[in-house]
Computed example of a mutant assay.
Amino acid sequence: MNFHRFEHINQSCKNLDVTRQFYQTLFPQWYVRAEGEEDGWKWMHFGERQFYLSLNQYLDSSTVSPSMGHVDHIGFVIENSEAMKALLDENGIDYSIYISPETKCRIYVDDPDGTQVELVEYNESYELK
């Protein structure tokens, strides 16, 4: 098998800076790995050493994203759902909660571009956490 690791998600943004700030709020340790501007769009790789979001914004607002697919949601494993809920409350970010047998908590929020983000804390007994 040639798979090494999951590296990034590419996402078109209405406002790259607003989207970056949203994810910076959720994950304060993330940083801008690289960024630039070319051919009518700005881009940024925002994340950490092993994973990042590739955020893209077309400078001409009339330009439609060439993406043909739709991401239903992006899932992130978190360590402490109570601390995450407190952070979301503190920043006025709406969320919903879902509980399933293998998780302590699943928190769902929408980013500024309408992509749903799932923040999941697994039960300690769950083998694949």
Rank of each mutant, 00 (worst) to 15 (best):
1 M>T: 10
3 F>L: 08
4 H>L: 12
5 R>N: 12
5 R>V: 04
10 N>I: 04
11 Q>M: 13
11 Q>H: 12
12 S>C: 11
13 C>S: 02
14 K>T: 00
14 K>I: 07
15 N>T: 02
15 N>L: 01
15 N>D: 15
16 L>P: 03
16 L>E: 00
16 L>M: 05
19 T>C: 02
22 F>W: 04
22 F>M: 02
23 Y>K: 03
25 T>W: 05
26 L>E: 02
27 F>D: 04
29 Q>S: 11
29 Q>E: 09
29 Q>C: 06
30 W>H: 10
31 Y>K: 11
32 V>F: 08
39 D>C: 03
42 K>G: 06
43 W>Y: 01
45 H>C: 14
46 F>H: 05
48 E>D: 13
52 Y>T: 08
52 Y>V: 06
53 L>S: 00
56 N>P: 04
56 N>M: 15
57 Q>E: 15
58 Y>P: 07
59 L>M: 10
59 L>A: 09
59 L>Y: 08
60 D>S: 08
61 S>I: 10
64 V>P: 00
64 V>W: 00
66 P>E: 04
66 P>V: 00
67 S>G: 08
70 H>V: 15
72 D>R: 12
72 D>V: 11
74 I>R: 07
76 F>M: 05
78 I>Y: 10
83 A>Q: 13
83 A>R: 08
87 L>V: 07
88 L>V: 04
89 D>A: 13
89 D>Y: 04
91 N>T: 06
92 G>F: 06
93 I>F: 02
93 I>R: 03
93 I>C: 06
94 D>A: 14
94 D>F: 15
94 D>L: 10
95 Y>E: 02
95 Y>W: 03
99 I>K: 14
103 T>A: 14
103 T>D: 13
104 K>L: 13
104 K>V: 14
107 I>R: 07
108 Y>F: 14
109 V>K: 03
110 D>K: 15
113 D>Y: 02
113 D>P: 01
113 D>N: 09
115 T>Q: 09
119 L>W: 09
120 V>W: 10
121 E>T: 08
121 E>V: 08
123 N>E: 14
128 L>T: 07
128 L>I: 02
